[in-house]
Structures are given as structure tokens and as C-alpha cells.
Computed example of a mutant assay.
Amino acid sequence: MRKPVLQFQDVSFSYDGKKTILDGFHLNVYDREFITIIGASGSGKSTLFRLITGLEKEEHGAIWLNGEQVKNRHGRTGYMPQQDLLMPWRTVLENAAVPLELAGVGKKEAASRILPLLNEFGLNGSEHKYPSELSGGMRQRVSFLRSVLTGSNILLLDEPFSALDAITRLSMQEWLLDQWEKREKTILFITHDVNEALFLSDRILVFQETPVQTLQEVIVPLDRPRSLRDLNDPAVVRLKDGLIDQLRSGGNKI
């Protein structure tokens, strides 16, 4: 039986009691899944993440993390935003250490945990560099390392590659899958790129018109490990075309 690590049970949420985003919403996410969330701008994707992280509070219902109904969810998940939010006055090592500092870990111990990870994150030899000295892909690797160092088994990635050039973005997608398989995390990933969603995901969840009660679920028909060439499979091409048509038409089911 699959183990649920994130559950929304009958959750409702609105902004200032006016714009209702979720209305009796249900969602189950299971251990070590890679879930991608797509939908039109303003449909509620980032609101979902804000509820998971505790930046917003549900009005009704319950949110469960790892089988526990959690009221204070701050720091219980790893979060990687669209912008890397690295502090320009801090080095790679110092930026990566932020979640450990917040947990009360001393500088020496933090460094001893981070330095062995730099090589597999493609950052070896960069520990004393500042963000301005890094490429876009390297900055995102630091941001992802920081989210991993929270220690959470649930990572939330909000369009983390959208600002990268096309080639770097493809490389980062492949690298992210390697890291996900190695670290055995559960990842929820927001994107507007249907190709990216199909390449990365076990399931794609589609936000449709608000208020939302459930998300449409699309199972990606690809085995793992997979390569970018697998996106040329006729079944995947048909699925891609259907998803794009659906997003363009405002949420009609494929």
C-alpha cells in the first residue's frame, strides 16, 4: 500500500472571504512521487504551495503531513521558488547553510554537512563564490541544495527553471530527476511547460476553474528511467496535444 505524505481533506480557502480558491478540496500525494501541477495563471497553483508551507491558513478542513495533522507547518517542507532568492552578500556555503542555521546548527557543523554535497550538486570548488559569480543553473542548484538541507521528505518547487535558457533548462531537468531518484524525496513541481511536466512526472495534476474541489489527474505513460527522447512516443505526443488544448480552452477535460 502506498504511504500518503501529504493530504488535503475537505479544505476551503479564500482571499479576504471574497475570492474562493479551494472549496472542500481533497488531495493525496504519496511517498516518493514526482507530481507536477499545471494550470492557467491565477488558478490557485501557488496558493496550494502557500497552504502547504503554512504561509496561508485553511479556513475549513485539515492538511496532513506524513500522517500528522499539522497546524504550524512552517519549516516542515522544503521550498524552492522561481527566483533563487540567494543573498548576494553570502557565499554559496553561507547561502546553503540558511536552513541549518534556522534549525540552530553551528557554522562548523553546517559546513561539514554541506561540503561533501557540493560535488554531486555540481558546485565543487564554488563554496566561497558569491551568487553574482554563478551561472543561472548553478544558482538554482544552490537553491535546491538549500531546500534539501531542510531535511524534509517533501519538496515544493515553484517554476524553478522558468528563467533559464532552453539548453540549461533541459540539463537541469535531467539533473533534478537524478537527484530525486537518489534522495528518495516526494516532489511537487509547478510549471507552465507541458513538455517539462510530462518528462518529470509520475502524475500531472491540472488546475481548472476556481473554486477547486479536486484536480484532474493525468498519469504519465512513461517508465523510469526515462530520457527526453521518450517524449516523442506517440501516446505522449497525443497526451501533450490534449493538455495544451485543454489549457488553451480554459479547463475542458481531455
Rank of each mutant, 00 (worst) to 15 (best):
V148M: 12
N72P: 02
M87E: 12
R113T: 13
G122A: 00
I35F: 09
G44F: 14
Y79S: 06
P81Q: 06
G151I: 13
M80W: 10
W175S: 01
I114W: 09
G42A: 03
S147A: 15
G75A: 10
G44E: 06
V105M: 13
I154F: 03
L123G: 00
A166S: 15
V105W: 12
L134S: 01
L65S: 11
M172V: 00
S135N: 04
S132Y: 13
A62L: 09
G104N: 08
R50F: 14
F161R: 01
E159H: 12
T47Q: 09
R139K: 15
Q69K: 14
L51A: 08
F121L: 07
G61T: 06
K57E: 14
L157I: 01
Q83I: 01
N153L: 11
R139N: 04
T47V: 03
V148R: 03
N119A: 15
S143K: 02
A103T: 06
G78M: 07
S126K: 10
G106K: 12
E58H: 08
L51S: 03
R76K: 15
L93R: 00
L157C: 03
V142F: 07
R183D: 02
L85D: 09
I154D: 03
P81I: 13
V148Y: 12
Y130E: 08
R146C: 04
L123K: 00
M172I: 13
Y130W: 10
K57R: 14
L102Y: 11
Q82I: 11
L123A: 01
L176V: 05
L102G: 00
P116G: 02
S43Y: 06
Q173N: 09
K57H: 14
G106C: 08
A110R: 09
G67I: 05
S171I: 07
T36E: 02
R139W: 13
L48K: 06
H128I: 00
R169E: 03
I114Q: 03
E181D: 04
L134Q: 02
I114E: 05
E109K: 14
H60F: 14
G54T: 09
D178I: 10
E120R: 04
Q173R: 13
G125H: 02
L115I: 03
T53Y: 09
V98F: 11
S143G: 05
R76M: 12
T77P: 04
L123V: 02
E120G: 00
G44Q: 00
L164N: 08
N124W: 15
F144T: 00
S135L: 11
L177F: 10
G106W: 03
L115K: 08
S147F: 13
R139V: 03
L177I: 10
D178K: 11
